[in-house]
Design a protein around this nucleic acid. Structure first.
Lengths: 343, 343
DNA sequence: TACAACGATGATAGCGCTAACATGATAGCG
DNA sequence: CGCTATCATGTTAGCGCTATCATCGTTGTA
């Protein structure tokens, strides 16, 4: 029933207390109240306390959206990963999150589901949020996305792998890692070796490891064999992978799996089947997930420092944001062969 | 060297193309350009195409910060969890994320690290971002945080457990789940049963499961035994838990672990030690993680539908945001006893 | 004592967008 | 043919905050 007053045209807003109200209560101007929060040193201690009290009293919550618009910068860091189902990305995210959060930044998490177009969309959205920096998992982007990232005038960090990066880069050499494991298998005397990947068109870093693996085998005069599964890595997929390898390549002595999930799934499945490991078949993985280190026999794998990768990447970005000179735009976190009893 | 012109006082902004520039190029007013994006039906098709072309041409990226300020609502959903190290939360987040993302919402992820004050801080920050709704893992909050949530005038969803919720609630009854597993162990004939928890002051839902476990044992006239570890659940901790139980309660017939990580860690450790399961000791867990279903013997556990929980919660929140009447503010997703060979 | 240097605070003017209302053209109706 | 309904678009006025420049004492110094 209550008709809106005809004169007062607008009345919007969220009915939340505003900085102006705080300022009025404290008897200062809004800008001083703003400074009390964002640049406390520039405000007289007594005045500041009066302002903080007023905020407390009326339950003021800063409107960060307004602040970001006015200052043209947010305290958001965009983080874009291809999947949340993979423990590897989670650990990198944890490293990023802890470091950024400690510096007062909030993470905007995006999940591409291995869709490169989706990534482009996410980058647009995050730029629309005036994020301070972007972190993406991997170096592969659609051309439009790459252009957007190159021209966005803020730190762009690409993690997980090393290569021709747009700007900042922290990761490891997957090709080399794949080669390293292949060499280990050769050193152990295995000759009939199969590499098992899972959707390597999407998980292209697994493809890079395979490339290293293949090159090593070829250099040794052996014929590389590849089995590719059409679903992402999981324990279940690993079990299936083992079955398929035994069916297709019955003389196989060793299986080099694209990751620990696959490898552990195969290992547990092999135990169920009563196979001896590595007597009947040797199994190797990649990642160094805890899981593989708790089974018997322990999984031979290549450990990558994922938490560290996230932390280093975040520190690098923070340094950039602080305006410090960044010494190394590219950082190799390396990897480590961990030999268990499975090979 | 180039002195700023003395008259033009300000010149800020990000040098990014704006809607006004798009509008000018397309020969319409800014509001029409705005509508072409946010409410396409209300704009003539030809005009709309002209506007979209103009956007494409100058590489316009919507400034979502400005849009949110003007409309007093963002498309953010705050999601607050106590940890990212636990697969359980990850799976809930995945369910939330997929559903919210499909509806055009962006998740703001917060990690409290089991610190209730940190949660309060996160809620403040997220409210400052004008998030459309909040999702928190669990019902426990600091009084100030609870007050903030109660008065924030947007959907608040509490997931994971059921109880006295602020507003919306999707979860399961942990007390009942703990009781259910205890009953199973009793039915199997075990009498000397130990419950192993890990930092239950923090992981208080594990404490609720223990309460159900204890009640069931007491009702059967048995004395409940508890072993608490001072670190969070992990395979490693589970192995340690088994050792401690065997040392402290040598006659133990069955161990009810607070979660699958602990249980699986113990199970694998037991196999390493050459113990028979369940002959020497029976092992049960909670969660229904894939891991436990791939070991031999398979782990007896209680499966909770975590992905579903996330999805249902998100759907409920979306319904609320759409203004639909919400039929049930509280939803029990239940749980399922999955009997493996470990008991 | 005059003047620069500094510290504390304020006035003004937007940031880029959209809600609310307004306008003008066209269509539908008896 | 005058009236209202509907559609397409425009005008106006902020959303709540902060960058920029301005002001006004106070202090230190020659």
């Amino acid at each position: 029933m209550s008709k809106r007053k005809p004169n007062s045209r607008h009345r919007r807003g969220s009915a939340q207390p505003t900085l102006s109200q705080v300022a009025e209560l404290a008897g200062v101007s809004p800008i001083t109240a703003s400074r009390a929060l964002n640049d406390p040193e520039r405000v007289n201690a007594a005045t500041r306390q009066r302002i903080l009290d007023a905020m407390e009293r009326i339950g003021y919550v800063p409107n960060l959206v307004a602040g970001s618009l006015a200052s043209a910068r947010s305290r958001f860091i965009a983080v874009i990963v291809p999947s949340l189902a993979n423990a590897v990305f989670i650990e990198v995210i944890q490293g990023l999150q802890a470091t950024f959060e400690a510096a007062g930044y909030q993470i905007l998490l995006g999940n591409t589901d291995y869709d490169i177009e989706r990534e482009h969309q996410l980058v647009r959205t995050f730029l629309g949020w005036s994020c301070s920096a972007l972190v993406t998992a991997g170096l592969r982007h659609s051309p439009a996305c790459r252009e957007l990232l190159a021209g966005c005038d803020r730190p762009v960090m690409e993690v997980m792998e090393l290569g021709e990066a747009l700007n900042l880069n922290v990761g490891l050499d997957h090709r080399e890692a794949g080669g390293r494991m292949a060499r280990h298998l050769l050193e152990r005397g295995y000759r009939d070796i199969v590499y098992v990947g899972a959707r390597m068109a999407d998980d292209y870093r697994a493809g890079m490891r395979y490339a290293g693996h293949r090159a090593t085998l070829e250099a040794a005069g052996l014929e590389p064999r590849l089995l590719e599964l059409d679903r992402l890595g999981s324990l279940e997929a690993g079990a299936q992978g083992l079955d398929r390898v035994r069916e297709r390549f019955p003389r196989t002595e060793a299986i080099h799996f694209a990751n620990d999930d696959l490898a552990t799934g195969a290992l547990l499945h092999a135990l169920r089947l009563g196979l001896r490991i590595p007597g009947d078949v040797a199994i190797a993985g990649f990642n160094g997930l805890p899981l593989g280190q708790h089974v018997t026999p322990r999984l031979t794998t290549i450990h990558s420092p994922r938490g560290t990768m996230g932390r280093l990447a975040a520190e690098q970005v923070l340094r950039c944001l602080a305006g410090d000179e960044v010494e190394a735009r590219q950082q190799d976190v390396g990897f480590e062969l961990r030999i268990g009893e499975s090979t």
